[in-house]
Simulated assay, not measured.
Amino acid sequence: MTTNEQTVTGERADILEFLGKHRYFLRHTAQGLTDDQANIRPTVSELTVGGLIKHVSTVEQHWAEFAQGKGRSTPGATEYTPEVIAEWQNQFRLVEGETLAGVLAEYEKIAAATDELVRTLDLDTAYELPAAPWQPPGVFWTVRRVFLHITAETAQHAGHADILRESIDGQKTMG
């Protein structure tokens, strides 16, 4: 894999290839869907194919900021108001004015920016995770682990999207 004049090899190339493969599976799941189909909830969950792509984009951008030492919230900064809950729920569906093509284009931009970080950041730099009810204080993640987490999140949601797509029209990403 090359960028401008720099060849990416070893661990960085592995991370880029692994992340790229799972992004492909997620994007492929949406191939050929209309906006309406991308927003269908064919199972009992709130998840939609378009919403999952939107969610993965948001999560990837959040973690990419974290990997740069930005975007870490302060303890107790989030109150779960009706507006915050609605915003969270809207991550999982296309809302008024959003299209599948638009969500996919935004995902491509975020993915390209993350890939550049994989190529350039010090993978051993570590930051403390924000306080959360499920997270004890004092836990640090390396930038490497952040990129692996983005990959795991992408793979997990690509599987969810595949189930949704199969429920919509029988298409499977693999098989």
Rank of each mutant, 00 (worst) to 15 (best):
residue 28 H to V: 12
residue 28 H to I: 03
residue 29 T to D: 02
residue 30 A to Y: 00
residue 31 Q to Y: 07
residue 32 G to L: 11
residue 32 G to F: 04
residue 32 G to A: 10
residue 33 L to E: 01
residue 35 D to A: 09
residue 35 D to M: 06
residue 36 D to N: 08
residue 36 D to M: 10
residue 36 D to V: 15
residue 37 Q to I: 04
residue 38 A to V: 10
residue 38 A to M: 03
residue 39 N to V: 07
residue 40 I to E: 02
residue 41 R to H: 03
residue 41 R to E: 12
residue 41 R to Q: 15
residue 42 P to G: 05
residue 42 P to D: 09
residue 43 T to Q: 11
residue 44 V to T: 10
residue 44 V to I: 04
residue 45 S to G: 13
residue 45 S to M: 11
residue 47 L to H: 06
residue 48 T to H: 05
residue 48 T to L: 06
residue 48 T to R: 01
residue 49 V to A: 06
residue 51 G to R: 07
residue 51 G to H: 09
residue 51 G to V: 14
residue 52 L to Q: 03
residue 52 L to C: 07
residue 53 I to C: 11
residue 53 I to K: 12
residue 54 K to G: 10
residue 54 K to T: 11
residue 54 K to M: 08
residue 55 H to D: 09
residue 55 H to P: 00
residue 57 S to N: 13
residue 57 S to V: 09
residue 57 S to H: 05
residue 57 S to A: 15
residue 59 V to W: 01
residue 59 V to M: 14
residue 60 E to L: 12
residue 61 Q to I: 05
residue 61 Q to M: 13
residue 61 Q to D: 14
residue 62 H to D: 05
residue 63 W to C: 06
residue 66 F to L: 11
residue 66 F to K: 04
residue 66 F to P: 00
residue 67 A to S: 15
residue 68 Q to D: 10
residue 68 Q to K: 15
residue 71 G to E: 01
residue 71 G to R: 08
residue 72 R to K: 13
residue 72 R to H: 11
residue 72 R to T: 13
residue 73 S to T: 10
residue 75 P to N: 04
